[in-house]
Design a protein around this nucleic acid. Sequence first.
RNA 1: GCCGAUGUGGCGAAAUUGGCAGACGCACAUGACUCAAAAUCAUGCGGGAAACCUUGUGGGUUCGAGUCCCACCAUCGGCACCA
Length: 950
Amino acid sequence: MSYDFKKVEKKWQEKWEKEGTFNAKNDFSMPKWYGLIEFPYPSGQGLHVGHPRSYTALDIVARKKRLQGYNVLYPIGFDAFGLPAENYAMKNHIHPRITTENNINHFRQQLKSLGFSFDWSREVNTTDPNYYKWTQWIFIQLYKKGLAYKATMPINFCTGCKVGLANEEVVNGVCERCGSPVVQKEKSQWMLKITEYAQRLIDDLKDVDFLDKIKAQQINWIGRSEGAEVEFKLDNVDESLKVYTTRPDTIFGVTYMVIAPEHKLIEKYKDKIENLDEVNEYKRKASLKSDFERSELNKEKTGVEIKGIKVINPLTGEKVPLWISDYVLSTYGTGAIMAVPCHDDRDFEFAKKFNLPIKQVIAPKFLDEKNPPRKDAKDTKRHVTTCIIKHPKEDKFLVLKYKDREWQSLVMGGIEENETVIDAAIREMTEETGYFDVKNSYQINATTCDKFYAAHKEVNREIVQECTVIELNSLDKKDVSEEEENKYEKVWVEKDKLLDYINIESQKFQIDMFLNEKAFTELDGAVAINSDFLNGLSAEEAKKKATEYVKKEGLGEKQVNYKLRDWVFSRQRYWGEPIPMVYCDDCGWNPIDEKELPLVLPEIEDYEPGENGESPLSKKPEWIKTKCPKCGKDARRETDTMPQWAGSSWYFLRYMDPHNNDALASKEALEYWSPIDWYNGGMEHTTLHLLYSRFWHKFLYDIGVVPTKEPYQKRTSHGMILGGNGEKMSKSKGNVINPDDIVEEFGADSFRVYEMFMGPFDQTAPWSMESIRGCSKFLDRVWNLKDKVVEKEEYSPKFESMMHKAIKKVSEDIEEMKFNTAVATFMTMVNEFSKEKEITKGEYKTFLILLNPFAPHMTEELFKEIGEEKDISETSWPTYDEAKTIDDEIEIPIQMNGKLKTTVKVSKDATEDEVKEVVKENETVKQLLKDKTVVKEIYVPGKIFNIVVK
RNA sequence: GCCGAUGUGGCGAAAUUGGCAGACGCACAUGACUCAAAAUCAUGCGGGAAACCUUGUGGGUUCGAGUCCCACCAUCGGCACCA
């Protein structure tokens, strides 16, 4: 009889549901395993094929762990607050609660049809007051510890919908829904101080097992940088400007200062500013720009000099101009910077545009690898200049090709005392080449530092090499000494060949700087120059020394900064958890009494936001009106709600004890189930959800609620499933695959096996209808094997090692997320079984148990077909004997000079001499060795035999 | 620009971590069954007539490199004026 997946899958799903087969046990003495997948947002579109990829993977692990004797918690729930339901309500006047409930029912049915072994008795729903009671409770604890505060922050405001938008809803500066421009609007918002945990969020990553790319992205997002805060005194005013810099080693190179348009200095010293109107106009324009315009549309730098205020460089005493520009962000550091155009790309661009001076204070250091400085030799210094000499008519430059050595070099020579660099350059040029008729000459910021051992003088040389550009007026010449004339050939090289022609590293650098004007930002192997007491120090040492100096002088100190900002926690929306805060004119903000939780979201008729983007709840005066929890006078409730990230920041704790009315979960449950052993989810949640939930967890740890510092011991990410055309699935592209259709056509087992087989779990993979058919065919062959089963519990000699190998391979693959190769192992086994007339019941049973986590319905049914009384879910995971995974006879490849020639068969415990004997007797080897001499023989036991011949 | 990943047959991909490149599947081809097709089963399937050549390109280390090192190219993902 052929396999009727519809009937069988339904049968087992009903049995599992009725019996609660997969519910976690409240037996805290058992070893536990807690697997978690990201609970879905129940959207109107239903389940996406991406969901089952993650759910199947951990379902496989969960099912295996249960068979291995663990008490497994594999829960599911719904993250049901959020925008789509609210938008739908605005349009169709259906309460979000109703749409949400319908969607959840649809999701639940879809998930059950795939046979996941979720513990449905622990299902949570973030919109359930019994759930969000605890979300609100956590918020109040945060408030009590000073981690929740109100601040005025700019939000994205859609001018069309009159509503605050999340960043994700702003696309190219306009509203995702209506296309109206989005502006920044100042709004008083609840904020959470995640920045207080920034360092711990980085440090504690070392204790958890997250994929490296996940750790890297988190660290990146937090964006720690080390530097110094330095005060620059203003000229003629008793005030200083504080800046943050990561390059205190470059303070000598500061040529101007910049403050952000929002910087308060302007308001404070407006009397001093000579061009106040101009400055205010710039400020006004900047404030009109959205963040998007500031960064994307406006790559070209803008700014205005603040005339009348000069800033004093604390290290040089030099007075430098102060500018206002929006390339400096008010929200990072101190909102002001010291500009070092020579060593910062942005400052360089700005200086070029406004013609501000550029001063080099860091130089690259070049070590001659063939002649490294010697410890026993004396250090000497030289000061030289190189000359980039331009042809009067053509776009060519002069290079000296030395006759006595391999140098192809610019004209160069020492700078004498009392001589300027340019004078020295022209003198050297004339001495070496005779040219003297100069049209133009100038020095460029391309000084280098060369260090090497000069053998002819037996000293170490340190050469500071400046770079001068000389444009010739004519090729008129003076006489050159014969010695100079014979030393080298003079070659005019075209501009674009110059870099390749020169063969001295430091000069290559100089030419690169000359041809492509840019900032020199390298730190590695760079040294300070033109920097007084820092001269000669490596950039790293200079950083340290400059910071020490500044600190000693009381001008600043070491400082760590983070890119991470505090979390804007309010939404001017209806469909979210009400923020449980009350404002009283006398007592200010206070949380409601915890006994009053949950603060239930009231019913409303009108979901539209107010004219100025107020929350829809602000139109419900009878709800707003309340008593001050502190003094009892009339007071009003907060009308903003929490963001969707709130409910998902702790849901995994509720699963541990979902029906508890006295705490978010009992101490015992938290102690037993924490931490989550394995959490899998999308890469898109790496920076927000993962960071937010880790932050809340750390806070809960600090106040003694949870027992672990980190919520998730292990975090992995699955790759996205693309449409058949290799593009992201989307309605508009018409490449969306509906899981229901797949289950209908092929059944849940085929669907599950295919999603695991399609490719490496953590990489994106395109959907293929042909391949799923292949998986379906594979399961049919598994089904048909039952007719070959003979009553015998042992493995037959033919299959013994294959069985042990397979148990090992599949067990390991599941732990390492290599589900695709586990499926390949099953397929290979079926191929082998199919070749035989009969297979033993023992072999088939082991095979079915191994396959069960992947294809749970069919394997359970087959277990019954072959007459087993127990369900697979009541049996245990097979074990293997390492010794039996090795074949008695092994094939050894024979290589000659590393190239495969033939193979020989030897016993698994053959000695090296025995193997050698077999190899020597091999006909192919004899033939090949005929006219060759054996130089060497390499035998890697059990692996390979390589003969090196001449 | 910065961070990360990936590059292997016509396609999705394997490769015990330095040891027989292409397991397994798809597609394709041939054969069996069939009046025929589908399904199923069997066989073949990187290139080349061969010696040999083949893991994005070019170097290197090694008896031996898809795997390690250096330089580059391409594609994808994330961040992006963060001083």
